[in-house]
Design a protein around this nucleic acid. Structure first.
Lengths: 192, 192
DNA sequence: TGTACATCAGTGAACGCGCGTTCACTGATGTAC
DNA sequence: TGTACATCAGTGAACGCGCGTTCACTGATGTAC
């Protein structure tokens, strides 16, 4: 049986294809390269087609950021699950996943945290974002203490890794000179 | 004596005025609002005039980022100099300056760290950026230890405050729920 | 199984918009003598 | 002090570009009977 709908203008899968095209465009040309027309072209479809699937450019960006958060959580989970079975090792692994995702998806990572460029009230977007956050928060649970507030530990770790990632992404710090693996222990000593 | 050159088309001060206009535009409309034409309009000058002062849009952005770094350093220094005379108090004050600048200049702070949008090899830009960094690094000096590498402490503190700032800026964390003043001590305990 | 019909997902032409950039120009400023 | 001239910093018209969006349309799909 031949692939169906391959010459029809009924695509059947266009939404996904457009999001994938957008991910490619971000990777190749940065934030400015993400436009409805380019996504449509990349998907092999007329430039007006995306309007049937997304609420304008902002809607497309929201869907792409959502896909980004899913990949982000996946990257952290993969690292965590292949790490030694200790809270410290797991927290370090989450950081590795966070940073490698950030390195490999510069523009996407930027977009994901530019909340003005997306519909932040989109349910899928929120769900994906919260799921990613939860991965990190869970890894922080063993380190909670009275000294930190309820969310203090998570915010500390999250800020640290997010800041490290964004400074590395923009070239302000050199991950070779001061690798994250040497920075995190300065925290972990105290969280122990 | 009347202000000279106020009806002449020789402005005399246009470069500065254009940069100020750009700072306003960023504050009002975010990154996307910063265009050569809008800066020129805001400065009351024809839209072709900026070409005489900047190497295109990227050059304008570089000059604006440079001005941003100067204001940034100033914000940190002001806080530091009005703080109690202890290393801890000073480091905390630097953080306050960093965060308040970041809060009050969302788009500008973003631009300053988007190194692909500026000519990062511009001497003025580099100088201003390094001067700002030095303010933070100096405040870290008293906390250097063997455990951290040569730059480990600075990178730790910088990452933390940068991450906290960018997460707060994008609404991912709530500075009221987990204020920076409660996060920093978790570090300081260990840096002591 | 067949027919009529509504719905849906595309097409492609057209629109207006703001953008950066170029260009010949003009008038003020500064300098040489 | 005056004159000639080069330089400089603007003007404003024009250009082409890619963008998001709209719109009438068309052909495939799915459904009711």
């Amino acid at each position: 049986m031949p692939t169906k709908a391959n010459k029809s203008h009924h695509h059947g899968n266009l939404k996904t294809v457009l999001v994938d095209a957008g991910l490619q465009l971000l990777a190749e040309g940065g934030l400015a390269a993400l436009t409805l027309r380019k996504c449509a072209a990349r998907a092999g479809v007329s430039h007006a087609a995306p309007a049937h699937h997304f609420d304008g450019l902002k809607g497309l960006r929201t869907a792409i950021a959502t896909a980004g958060f899913k990949a982000f959580a996946k990257a952290m989970i993969e690292q965590r699950d292949s790490a030694a079975d200790s809270p410290h090792a797991r927290l370090a692994a989450i950081g590795r996943g966070y940073l490698s995702f950030s390195e490999n998806n510069e523009a996407l990572a930027t977009l994901m945290f530019m909340t003005k460029e997306t519909f932040t009230d989109d349910p899928d977007y929120q769900l994906a974002g919260e799921a990613a956050y939860q991965v990190l928060a869970d890894a922080c649970t063993p380190f909670k203490s009275g000294a930190a507030g309820a969310k203090g530990t998570e915010v500390l770790v999250w800020s640290l890794v997010q800041g490290y990632a964004s400074l590395a992404r923009s070239g302000q710090i050199d991950p070779h000179e001061t690798p994250y693996a040497e920075i995190l222990p300065l925290l972990a000593l105290q969280l122990r």
